[in-house]
Write a protein that binds this DNA or RNA. Structure first.
Length: 588
RNA sequence: GCACCCGUAGCUCAACUGGAUAGAGCGUUGCCCUCCGGAGGCAAAGGCUACAGGUUCAACUCCUGUCGGGUGCACCA
């Protein structure tokens, strides 16, 4: 299945033409890009302008000489030079037809796995257990799952790991609640609900209503909770036993959300898992002179003047930096990854910068050894007032489970309003769940992760424009046509020859053939919104095709070709949505 | 005080990492249902890309400064 990536084909051709002729052929070949406007063709080569300077010739002359060296006539129409020296490239339609025919019979729709797979450890979601999950956890969870699916599909070895906050101060709160406010009966009947209740009840007694579990000295309730946490960390048998008693219920609660979101982890190694290793980490860093004592604490001083990263507090407790260092060490030993991705809020950028630098000094990573450590940062979730949503802002938005329920409820309204000719009432719950989850995920993934995310039901549930629902709908329409033509994935003639007569057919074909190129961009940038942008373009191209090219009523010589186009669109949409963690629906 | 991120149409966001006339959705204004699913399509209006310099054949993109917003900076994670 060679040669399906149009961009790579062209770059390869240009590289050959440039080699032994122009300086730095690789860089110049990389200047082959998708056309900025379809009226210029399919792709364009922008190398002549800069080469003109380097070679001391007019750019248009460089373009002409370059074209004379380029082998194009088997796959391209005659390239044209435009403007200051742009080379416009347009594929021969027969070439596109041939590639689509190959894609139609290929289980991966013609998308090749990468030549050199890496091994990625992806650290995402990482909620604090025993605290209700809220919208803030959504982005990491959704983004991480999508990146895992994308990299895996491209042939990389992917290891997902949920680094749970299962050793923090929230357990002090729970233990204190357990000792003072327990409803023993309820704990037996419904442990998840009772623990959630205890957490909320104790938090109500805090003097300050912040987002943090700790912070106000002199608050008797907080002091009591802190004491319980300290006892737990010191290895107090009673508190350890309580922790072990609480954990299954905590895990059960988050597991339910993950199931609903169709999110899965290969490993769930929380902070507690690394506790036995922390003392050794500190000792080793001290012994190597990377960390030193200061004011009773132990820290890594990365700059002369700035504050250190503490790895042991003056009370002897370790910090999350210590845990993260132990985690890096463990992952390198256990998995030998080429890359470790941290899908975490951009507010922790400084922490990761310091962490990665410390890991480097520790010898765990370097330019010639160890994994690439990447903080896949994303913006905050904001309310409609553009202020970050805090847990305590409450409302219907804060609690994740309620949010998902609301999304499904809204999807139900849409389902009921829809007058689908063959609506199947028995499928209502599965359809609304898929539409509801899809809407939430897509709204998030379709936005560049680096920017803050304004939470809006209106936008999330919008059924027009670039949304999950539109994609799911486009998919269902494809399926509907195939069904009416009485073909199935098993019976459709995938070997029928493809004819791209109308310009709408050709435009759709180009879009279909660009998927590999797009997925590679999405993967190298770790940005799923590249995929949603592609799906939106594909769906629009399909819609235009659909509007202008009858399928079922097509002339008999075109019918198999157009059916095959519908089939390929359906498969591409399904694949793209699947990489985003969104399910398709056969009828909706 | 220091550091990092961000200022793009009325609103929410793109712009494939330096390419041609900065694009979508919502909202606004017009069209298109005897037609495979109108959750659609076509068109119009809307911009000094915060501002001022600089680099370049070419700047939303890179550099410097100014203004405005966000976030983070020794014992929370």
């Amino acid at each position: 299945m060679l040669g399906m990536n149009l961009l790579e084909v062209l770059r390869g051709r240009f590289y050959q033409a440039l080699e032994n002729w122009a300086p730095d052929p690789a860089t110049a070949a990389a200047l082959v890009k998708p056309a900025t406007d379809s009226k210029f063709g399919d792709y364009q080569a922008n190398a002549a302008m800069s080469l003109g300077k380097a070679m001391g010739k007019p750019p248009r002359q460089v373009a002409e000489e370059l074209l004379a060296r380029l082998k194009w006539d088997d796959i391209l129409e005659k390239p044209e030079i435009a403007g200051p020296g742009f080379i416009n490239l347009k594929f021969k339609t027969e070439y596109l037809e041939g590639l689509l025919s190959q894609a139609a019979v290929d289980s991966r729709i013609g998308i090749s796995p990468v030549a050199k797979p890496g091994r990625y450890v992806i650290d995402f979601s990482g909620p604090n257990v025993a605290k209700p999950m809220h919208v803030g956890h959504l982005r990491s969870t959704i983004l991480g799952e999508s990146l895992a699916r994308l990299l895996r599909f491209l042939g990389h070895d992917v290891i997902t790991d949920n680094h749970l906050g299962d050793w923090g101060t929230q357990f002090g709160i729970l233990i204190h609640g357990y000792r003072t406010k327990l409803d023993a009966e309820n704990l037996k009947k419904n442990p998840v609900a009772e623990l959630a209740r205890l957490y909320v009840e104790v938090r109500k007694d805090f003097k300050t209503a912040g987002d943090e579990d700790e912070g106000t000295p002199g608050d008797p309730v907080q002091d009591a909770c802190r004491l319980e946490t300290a006892k737990l960390h010191r290895g107090d048998a009673e508190n350890i036993a309580l922790w072990q008693k609480f954990m299954p219920a905590c895990l059960e609660e988050i597991e339910a959300i993950y199931n609903r979101l169709d999110v899965h982890f290969d490993h769930v190694l929380g902070e507690s898992f690394y506790q036995p290793m922390l003392g050794g980490v500190v000792e080793d860093l001290l012994a190597r002179g990377i960390a030193r004592e200061s004011q009773g604490a132990v820290g890594v001083f990365l700059t002369e003047e700035g504050p250190p990263s503490l790895i042991r507090k003056s009370d002897g407790a370790f910090t999350y930096t210590t845990t993260d260092l132990a985690t890096i060490d463990y992952r390198i030993r256990e998995f030998q990854p080429t890359d470790i991705l941290y899908v975490v809020d951009s507010r922790q950028a400084l922490h990761f910068q310091n962490l990665f630098e410390t890991a480097r000094r520790w010898g765990r990573t370097g330019t010639d050894h160890g994994p690439r450590l990447v903080h896949v940062a994303f913006g905050s979730v904001l309310g409609s007032d553009r202020k970050p949503i805090k847990t305590r802002d409450g409302k219907a938005v804060a609690n994740l489970d309620q949010l998902l329920d609301e999304s499904v409820r809204l999807a139900g309204e849409i389902f009921d309003a829809n007058k689908a000719e063959d609506a199947d009432p028995s499928s209502r719950s599965s359809v609304t769940e898929a539409v509801g989850m899809g809407a939430v995920k897509y709204a998030d993934l379709s936005q560049n992760r680096t920017t803050d995310y304004v939470f809006s039901w209106e936008k999330m549930m919008a059924m027009e424009g670039n949304t999950a629902t539109y994609m799911q709908y486009a998919y269902a329409r494809c399926q509907s046509i195939l069904k009416k033509a009485d073909v199935t994935p098993e019976t459709i003639n995938t070997k029928a020859s493809i004819h791209l007569r109308a310009q709408e057919e050709r435009a759709l074909a180009m879009q279909l053939l660009r998927m590999e190129e797009i997925l590679l961009v999405a993967a190298s940038d770790l940005r799923p919104n590249v995929i949603t942008g592609y799906l939106w373009d594909l769906a629009k191209a399909y819609s235009v095709f659909f509007q202008n090219c009858p399928v079922l009523k097509a002339p008999s010589e075109l019918l198999p070709s157009r059916l095959l186009l519908c089939y390929l669109v359906a498969r591409s949409l399904r694949l793209g949505l699947n990489l985003l963690g969104i399910r398709v629906i056969e009828r909706m």
